[in-house]
Design a protein around this nucleic acid. Structure first.
Lengths: 333, 333
DNA sequence: TAAAGTTTCGTAAACGTTTACGGCAAAGTA
DNA sequence: TACTTTGCCGTAAACGTTTACGAAACTTTA
């Protein structure tokens, strides 16, 4: 900018105004500045600008695990929309670690980010950084996992209803003893899916059986495998399994195949997430669609609104959609 | 910082020195500063710091498609290593668009990033931004797709050798007419895999047959489906198909199943990438492992070295590993 | 023609750090 | 004692922008 100013015998102020299309600058000088800027291929120093305005065109997103398909689609949604507005997005991984999560938020605050998108790793919201964010006027929108007492911006899936759909579908297919392999209690989504499972049973007058519910620690395929063995070897085994995620269902598949049990005739299986894999399994896995890209896009939109003007909490709950495939439709008999 | 300085009756300079563990500060004052900083929960303004030092603790990564499993694992590798050094990583998506790619690099330069990791979308390197990067002393490490005439830092897989392994394996299994569904010519990796395919044929005295090679435009599962139909309906159809990616192999599977052709007995299939899906297909897909996380980690290491001291080009080529599963091992007959 | 309004521009301060330079003690050396 | 060294600290400038304020020049209006 100084170069341009000197060569044109104007002040740096004028150059700045010309480049930013402010009103206080003559047509001829603006033209000259813009032209010279091209020639010198000047590129604005975003750092300086953001220091002065104490506002950057950067937003941060914090996700529990980057390589998970669902989260990578959320990321894609956010990035693709942000790019349209020339916003840059920083990404970090909390690895399900609350301490790391709040450290990362601190870093982002130090970077003057304009906003933060967060998929919290716990079912409770850390008030200390909530305050820090409010103090710095940095909007926050939560994604996917929403603590029960949180009243700010968020976008998530209707996990409760999704689980209900899944279980209702299994019941309609004639399955009588439906097991559920769930996630940890401190995950809001695992809890919601579990509640949906319970509700569907209740609505169909099926007694809740504690021995049919298993709780994962890591929500891994290995746990799916392990719990399936446990369930099927029990005195009164289930004839269907509804899992908290497709990844767990993978383990269920392995266990059932190993035990020579047929899916869906011996045991019906329904997953959750519509991961890439699910449509290519044998048999194809019935699951709940989780539109990650749309969720990411919407989260970004909310952020955009939030730091443009809006004060009121924006909340979007995507309705769950059941994708009936092969793992849950019994051959007629 | 000013608050701290005033409350302690020292200068801002001293505070800065204390916080950064510089040597020019007394033990007692350092203690006092650090303690007060905690109390006020001061968090450093990274923007100001990076403006002054004209160096940020931010690195940028630009990938063609974020939701692709391989790229998301690369991203994970980069982010997890970067986080250990308190580096923040911004991520952008070029969508295979060279113009967008160079625009994004311009933005990153404006952000004073310390370095850039890039997976280029074309097989040629855009010299204009290479110069801009050199001018700003921003190191660049390329990942996965490396233009042939590029001599800087990079880390990639030995695609050439990987393809050779795949085709050699098919030949050893007794397949005689091996087709290849490849990617576009301007993709360095597609080209390398194609060359590996040719080389394996040559080494085994199998004539190259132009009609057995099909070129994808988008490297999609749909194209895999389409080309498989075309191949199998031709007068002299292949008995094996080697695809440029697992995604294409998905289409191959669909087409073959539709045509009631058995994998691997009628037609052998080998993919490339070891995507998440591949191990859960029926039959399980033989493929080439592509260790995304390790690649990402190494790319970050290279970057780290580059802006610490090193000048010489760091280059790493991971050796390809063939994962023999079910889609390519014929029942003995 | 004088007063008032408008357009265009410059001065200087600010954003929150870091750092070269120098000062002033206390401590060591001859 | 006179000198140098060392340890601790402050002053001020700098990083590249943006912006409140005001000043000139020019245009309009009465």
């Amino acid at each position: 900018m100084r170069d341009i100013a000197e060569k044109l015998n104007v002040s740096i102020t004028t150059v700045s105004r010309a480049l930013n299309n402010k009103m206080d600058v003559g047509e001829k000088t603006r033209k000259a500045v813009l032209e010279l800027a091209k020639d010198l291929d000047y590129s604005p120093n975003a750092i300086a600008s953001s220091l002065r305005k104490s506002k950057s065109n950067v937003i941060g997103i914090i996700l529990p695990r980057l390589e998970h398909y669902f989260f990578s689609t959320v990321l894609k949604g956010v990035v693709s929309y942000a790019q349209k507005d020339n916003f840059i997005v920083t990404v970090s991984e909390s690895s399900h670690n609350p301490k790391k999560e709040s450290d990362l938020i601190g870093e982002l605050i130090g970077m003057n980010v304009s906003g933060i998108i967060l998929s919290p790793c716990r079912n409770e919201i850390n008030l200390s950084y909530l305050n820090a964010l409010k103090q710095n006027k940095i909007p926050l929108v939560l994604v996917d996992r929403i603590p029960t007492n949180y009243h700010g911006h968020y976008v998530r899936l209707n996990d409760y209803h999704g689980a209900q759909l899944a279980v209702k579908h299994l019941i309609q297919q004639g399955y009588k003893r439906i097991a559920h392999i769930r996630g940890h209690e401190y995950s809001s989504i695992a809890e919601a899916r579990y509640q949906g499972y319970c509700q569907a049973l209740k609505l169909n007058d099926i007694d809740y059986d504690l021995s049919l519910v298993k709780t994962c620690e890591f929500v891994s395929s290995e746990e799916g495998y392990y719990f399936t063995k446990e369930l099927m070897l029990s005195p009164n085994p289930p004839d269907a399994i509804f899992t908290v995620s497709d990844e767990v269902a993978l383990g269920v598949y392995n266990a059932l195949k190993e035990m020579k049990l047929h899916i869906p005739n011996d045991v019906g299986v329904v997953g959750f997430s519509n991961s890439e894999v699910s449509n290519y399994l044998c048999p194809k896995l019935t699951t709940i669609d989780q539109p990650g890209i749309r969720i990411g896009e919407m989260a970004y939109e909310f952020l955009r609104n939030a730091f443009e003007n809006n004060e009121t909490a924006q909340q979007k709950i995507f309705e769950a959609k059941l994708l009936i495939r092969e793992s849950s439709v019994r051959a007629k008999r």
